[in-house]
Design a protein around this nucleic acid. Structure first.
Lengths: 199, 199
DNA sequence: CAAGAATCTCGCACTCAGTGTAAGATGCAG
DNA sequence: CTGCATCTTACACTGAGTGCGAGATTCTTG
């Protein structure tokens, strides 16, 4: 659940203010979404609470749903970073599995459920979430190709990226339907095991 | 690319008119989208061309993007039907592969490219398309469970459904980037082969 | 430090998708 | 024929997102 708001070595006034405003908008959005629901929360509400004009909201986010989407926008890069640190002598699918498990262990399960719940209330948001998974899939595929550049591996690596992101997606789905009985990483590990046994 | 407009044994005046109006709206939409682009086409344009009021459009479609989405809404059911006719002694992934290949052979490649191109022009439409793939995935999973009801197979079958729909999605992606060099079914078959070799 | 560029902020006016309502027209079943 | 469900329309409204232009703030460079 990382947005692009965290660190900043040597940042000037401008960068600091931007970061702060971004954080204020995000917090205002999440709070109001949880309070009155996604659809019932207008951009006027969010802007007022964040202390900015409605017009200026669009200088920070392209659309209302980006507030929620930004919460998981960092995941793609995090997985890629973790993947780069895996040994090369592993089979690709196992390397990705280990990387994904490391990254997902960071996110608190209850927070994931809350955000997921929120996204399910609006079909467009839900759809964009799936689309962002597809983007992460593409990012992951690029990283896999860097690590295993042999051309005859390309199709296989594309499938690996697809399966890995699919495993994550189905794990969040199970998490939602189980309501938190099993830990996220356990479900995820089970999915990867099923993948290996299947194909 | 089947919408719910085709057959109708014993249909009354009402059902016939509804079918005709639905077809007129769809045709008006597609024509205008291809002519002026998706975003530049307003619901007023579509309604005028289809000979209905703007308000009445929403009696046939929930939203503008549903015109495009409806073009592939039948695919899930078609795959499921094809799957039911596969022999049971096959491994699940192979049964799904054969079913998918049969269904996809029906759709003309050039039409698929045209619709796909259209959808790529608008991020929300694109996102909803991915979301509809996820729905088809769920439908497929349900059908797989019917055919192989053993409880210990459940997770595996969920992965199979995910991989199959993923293979289709990545095939349309390749189709788009290659611009029609290879036939769709060839790409798809290649993807399934890569799946089997990988996991 | 001064001046100009780049970034940020706002208000206003506008387009368009989508919804609520209420009233009229048309097809259907008893 | 008559009541009921379906279809159709016009009107008014909310809210997301964009274009524009003008003012303020921060950064950069001479």
């Amino acid at each position: 659940m990382t947005n692009g708001i965290d660190p900043a070595p040597q940042e000037g006034t401008r960068a600091r203010k931007r970061r702060e405003t971004l954080a204020r908008i995000t917090e205002a959005g999440i709070t109001l979404f949880l309070e009155k629901g996604y659809d019932a929360t207008t951009l006027d509400d969010i802007a007022a609470r964040a202390g900015i004009s409605r017009r200026n909201f669009f200088y920070y986010f392209k659309s209302k749903d980006e507030i929620l989407l930004s919460l998981q926008s960092g995941m793609g890069e995090m997985i890629v970073d973790a993947l780069r640190q895996q040994p090369v002598d592993q089979p690709p699918l196992e390397a990705v599995r280990d990387a994904v498990l490391k990254v997902c262990a960071i996110f608190p399960t209850d927070e994931m459920i809350a955000i997921d719940q929120l996204m399910r209330t609006n079909p467009v948001v839900q759809a964009r979430k799936q689309a962002s998974m597809v983007e992460h899939e593409a990012t992951l595929y690029a990283a896999l190709r860097e690590k295993w550049p042999a051309p005859d591996q390309a199709i296989r690596l594309r499938m690996v990226a697809m399966m890995a992101m699919g495993a994550i997606r189905l794990a969040t789905d199970s998490l939602h339907h189980e309501g938190g009985k099993r830990a996220f990483t356990d479900i995820l590990a089970g999915n990867f095991a099923a993948l290996r046994d299947t194909a």
